[in-house]
Computed example of a mutant assay.
Amino acid sequence: MQAYLFVHFREKTSPDGEQVYFGISKDGFQWEEVNKGRPLLWAYYGDKGVRDFTITRCKRSGKYYIFATDLSLAYGMRNQYHQSWNEISKKGSKCFSVWESEDLVNWTEQRLVKIGNEDFGCMWAPDIIYDREHGDYVLHWSSSHKENNFGWKGIYCSRTQNFEDFSAPQLLYRKEDSGVIDSAIYEEDGKYYMFLKSEDKPARIVLLKADHVHGPYSRVEEFDRSMEVLESGLYEAPTAVRLEDGKWCLFLDYYGVPGAGQGYVPFIADSLAEGKFVRSDQAFNFPYGFKHGTILTITMEDYERIKSYKWEEQ
């Protein structure tokens, strides 16, 4: 029997919201808070705040890695970014915040991994996919870039085998008629599927398909029809997990209301290839509003270890 770990942050205006939180579940729908709904890990370096998490387990070392956007709105929006999203987009961090662990409860201190250079804007929303074809990991994210005068954002990527050394960033995907952010890639039956937030035309989540992690990618039109029932421009940060029964659960981060009313909404599909997702709110419960994260499939032993660990004593 498998269980699930959701690594995320919280929609709060205070600095404690932009830290590392865990949620755990036995079925992927009914979730429990960890550490009484308080942060488990803190960012002390860079912007001193973190958002947009992903978590993965390295097949070679067995270690778990959390990557996050190095950004604090609680501090930075008022300070170095002068209340300007445009300044964040152009001048934000070229690093990702990283933690690592061997058991999901004992974590290293935050370190910063610099991937970008001054040609990049802020490095947003990292995610990681294992590339079976090349036997390495593809770290991908969204950024504005000097090549188009820091206009529409594209999806960039870098490869690694050990999460210490990374290849030079390359463009993975660009949409010609709008920016794209919040990429999340999954493998199903040897094909790769990328969820994205399209910032326009349409201002919705889209799903792409490719034979290789590096593409080329094409649209899954049936998924577009599934998303037509949602109001434009109010959902972002897609993350998905394959459930024990083989179905896929896609979570979309709803930000259509202010404050704590924001949070994830689940959608269920029989397969990514089919692309037909059905909204399933009534089956889902989380103890508080939570933001942009990633789900990792874990064992029941992992679940019990995380649940029983004395986090508050750290």
Results as ranks from 00 to 15, higher is better:
M1W: 12
L5N: 06
R10I: 13
P15Y: 12
D16C: 10
V20E: 00
Y21S: 09
G23F: 04
I24G: 05
I24D: 03
S25A: 08
D27R: 00
F29Q: 05
N35K: 13
I55G: 02
T56P: 07
T56W: 06
K59L: 08
K59Y: 07
S61E: 11
Y65I: 09
F67E: 05
A68D: 01
D70I: 04
A74I: 02
E87I: 12
K94R: 13
C95E: 04
F96G: 04
V98M: 13
S101Y: 05
D103T: 06
V105I: 15
W107V: 07
T108P: 14
V113Y: 00
D119N: 11
D119H: 11
I128S: 06
Y130L: 05
D131V: 02
Y137E: 00
E147T: 10
G151P: 05
K153R: 09
Y156L: 02
S158H: 00
P169G: 08
S178E: 01
V180Y: 01
I181Q: 03
I185M: 09
E187P: 07
D189A: 14
Y192F: 08
Y193H: 12
F195G: 02
S198D: 08
E199Y: 03
K201Y: 11
P202C: 03
V206C: 13
A210R: 06
D211S: 12
V213L: 03
H214L: 15
P216C: 01
S218L: 03
R219D: 15
V220T: 07
M227D: 02
V229T: 02
E231P: 06
S232R: 07
A240E: 10
W248I: 06
C249F: 02
L250Q: 08
D253A: 14
Y255F: 15
G259I: 10
Q262R: 15
G263Q: 09
G263C: 13
G263N: 05
Y264H: 15
P266F: 15
D270S: 09
L272W: 07
A273P: 03
E274L: 05
R279F: 00
D281N: 12
F284Y: 15
P287W: 14
P287Q: 13
Y288S: 13
H292D: 11
L296C: 09
I298A: 10
M300I: 13
Y303S: 07
E304M: 03
I306R: 08
K307V: 11
Y309K: 03
W311M: 08
W311T: 06
